[in-house]
């Protein structure tokens, strides 16, 4: 195994440069090192001007999503040795505006998220604030998968629909809506006006890239298709029963 590997890192300052450029850095190649460790080596030892987000480096905070050799990935969980002998190309997540270098603007998602009401709206919320609501492990399993989303934005980066249709609510937001739709004692129809729309589930053409990209095993594509059934079944009901 060689001692070093080359990182080709996208550099871009939108306010002063017309297009991103790739800059090459030689970083140590060690078995334990993730791509993020390589970037931190650059930051600490070679070029302190490089900008990127990271925090927990244990795959749970969702900060360090980038495009590694063309695929969206959490760089803390993507290892340099898997790309040896290199080079490894590190670019910002696709489908988002770049703020600087590897840092992207995700405000679009943060504006869309409240639209799907990602909170619990209980059917029976009768002011009981001091009792425990029972929930069997089976009821928990019904929605738990969708609660595992870390908002890392890899699915938006992978989604070809979001790339050409920026109004699309997107995989994570819809999966989180399903997370609350499927919780016990709630109604799946509370979010119908947002989800069963052209910018909601009907925009999805079921490419399935979101599910493949998800580092946490969430299945946003499944969530979307499932809600299409919910929405379609409801439209078949007579008005009075909707």
């Amino acid at each position: 195994m060689p001692d070093t590997i080359t990182l080709q890192v996208a550099r871009y300052r939108p306010e002063s440069e017309s297009a991103p450029t790739l800059q090459e850095y030689e970083v140590p190649l060690r078995e334990e090192w993730a791509v993020l460790d390589g970037l931190n080596y650059v930051k600490d030892h070679l070029d302190g001007t490089l900008s990127f987000r990271w925090s927990c480096r244990m795959g749970i905070c969702g900060s360090c999503g980038m495009t590694v050799n063309g695929d969206p990935a959490l760089t803390c969980g993507t290892f340099l040795t898997d790309y040896a002998p290199g080079p490894v190309r590190v670019e910002p997540l696709a489908n988002f505006p770049v703020i600087r270098d590897l840092v992207v603007e995700i405000d679009d998602f943060l504006h869309k998220l409240p639209e799907v009401k990602p909170w619990l709206v209980r059917d029976d919320d009768g002011g009981v604030d001091d009792v425990e609501f029972l929930q069997t492990p089976e009821q928990l399993d019904a929605y738990k998968q969708y609660s595992m989303c870390i908002n890392c934005m890899l699915c938006y980066s992978a989604c070809p629909v979001y790339g050409i249709e920026p109004d699309f609510l997107g995989p994570a937001a819809i999966a989180l809506a399903q997370r609350y739709n499927l919780a016990p004692a709630t109604s799946a129809h509370q979010r119908l006006d947002v989800l069963a729309t052209d910018a909601g589930v009907w925009a999805c053409t079921y490419v399935g890239e979101c599910t493949r990209a998800c580092p946490k095993g969430v299945d946003p594509a499944g969530a979307i298709q499932r809600y299409k059934l919910t929405a379609a079944a409801r439209t078949l009901l007579p008005w009075g029963k909707r």
Binding site: E132, F133, L134, Q139
Partner: peptide, 15 residues
């Protein structure tokens, strides 16, 4: 729990 935090449960549904 009332806000939806998915606490692990016993088979009978209690936290």
């Amino acid at each position: 729990e009332h806000w939806g935090c998915p606490w692990s449960r016993q088979p009978d549904g209690e936290v």
